[in-house]
């Protein structure tokens, strides 16, 4: 059995079915992200694992043990809240030591562990500060340290970085990933930011409306979205039906049973591709925006609108022609479920 196993979990608030039959396995040492739009039940799932939420049906296993009826305090699960939830009346040191004092560890050992974990998050000099004397990023690092110091079996993080500004966020993403690898700890990380999920995780679990719609490595997810929802949520895909594709290129024959296709915008080329299995068709450039390293171009082909990302280094903006041919390799046309 997997280190964490969730089996046919169902949870509802009155008539509102928030989690619909969730089954999920997570291995020891894995970093998994739960990704999905607001209100899809990510936090709820995480809180169920932590024992903070009551559910109706299903089973939960952690390290081989059924934990459904175990109270939070006995689960040995760490939790990092979006709002940090540091104890305002305690110093950084006291906050981190809290879990260890509860376990009645000897003072010297507590001291050792607290200082070690403070070193780990790079905040040794802030031991005597109170939480409100620290920046948001520092507070979240303390919160992380407080959860890590009790050596939980799994660390659950509920959008820990969403209250922080972009730069600190990037930095902390790297820090968390590094820490996780270094300590080999199992983590479940909730986010609604697909980029964050891609950067961090071994495996991404995409959720929508209380269901898991796809689980895959970041690379797989990016290259092979399984459904319309995933494709549109993950980002820059053009989603077309087989009829629309036939309009572009009458010779196109779809795979049987599939009616929709996702085409990543950077796989559409404005320079000819040679070889077999290439679709090509004329298109008209409506507009473009420079995103930095890429230029996002908006084309119309027949009645269809297409988004195409072109590398900035590959082309000079002034060379972008008003009318041009576009090329797509068959391999980049990914069949998806609606």
């Amino acid at each position: 059995m997997s280190f964490i196993a969730i089996d046919e979990l169902k949870l509802s608030y009155g008539d509102n079915n928030v989690l619909k039959n969730i089954s999920l396995n997570i291995e020891e040492g894995e970093l998994v992200t739960l990704l999905g739009p607001s209100g899809c039940g990510k936090s709820t799932l995480l809180r169920v694992l932590a024992g903070l939420e009551v559910f109706q049906e299903g089973e939960l296993y952690l390290d081989g043990e059924e934990i459904s009826n175990l109270p939070s305090k006995d689960r040995n699960v760490g939790f990092v809240f979006q709002s940090y939830a540091l104890f305002p009346n305690m110093t950084v040191y006291e906050n981190i030591a809290f879990g260890l004092t509860i376990k009645k560890l000897p003072k010297t050992e507590i001291n050792q562990k607290v200082m070690a974990v403070l070193r780990l998050v790079n905040l040794e000099d802030k031991a005597d500060y109170y939480p409100d004397q620290l920046s948001g990023g520092q507070q979240q690092r303390i919160s992380l340290a407080r959860s890590l110091v009790t050596e939980p079996k799994v660390l659950l993080l509920d959008e820990p970085l969403s209250a922080l500004d972009a730069k600190i966020r990037k930095q902390l993403q790297m820090d968390i990933r590094k820490l996780q690898k270094q300590l080999g700890i199992t983590m479940i990380f909730v986010t609604h930011d697909q980029e964050e999920a891609m950067i961090l995780s071994d495996r991404v679990i995409v959720m929508n409306e209380g269901k898991i719609v796809q689980q895959a490595t970041p690379q797989e997810l990016y290259a092979q979205p399984k459904t319309h929802f995933v494709a549109s949520f993950i980002g820059n895909y053009n989603i077309l039906t087989s009829e629309q594709l036939k309009q572009l290129h009458p010779a196109f024959t779809g795979k049987s049973g599939k009616h929709s296709y996702a085409i990543r915008s950077e796989t559409i080329q404005i320079k000819p591709i040679h070889g077999e299995n290439v679709l090509s068709f004329p298109a008209h450039l409506d507009d473009y925006t420079v995103l930095g390293s890429t230029i996002r171009c908006y084309y119309t082909a027949g009645t269809l609108k297409l988004t195409v990302d072109v590398l900035n280094s590959e082309i000079n903006i002034s060379e972008l022609a008003k009318t041009t041919d576009l090329y797509i390799h068959h391999d980049h046309i990914v069949p998806i479920d609606m």
Binding site: G51, E53, V54, F55, Q56, S68, N69, P71
Partner: peptide, 8 residues
């Protein structure tokens, strides 16, 4: 928690 126990 699976069921809400009688709240003591």
């Amino acid at each position: 928690m699976k069921r809400i126990q009688w709240n003591r």
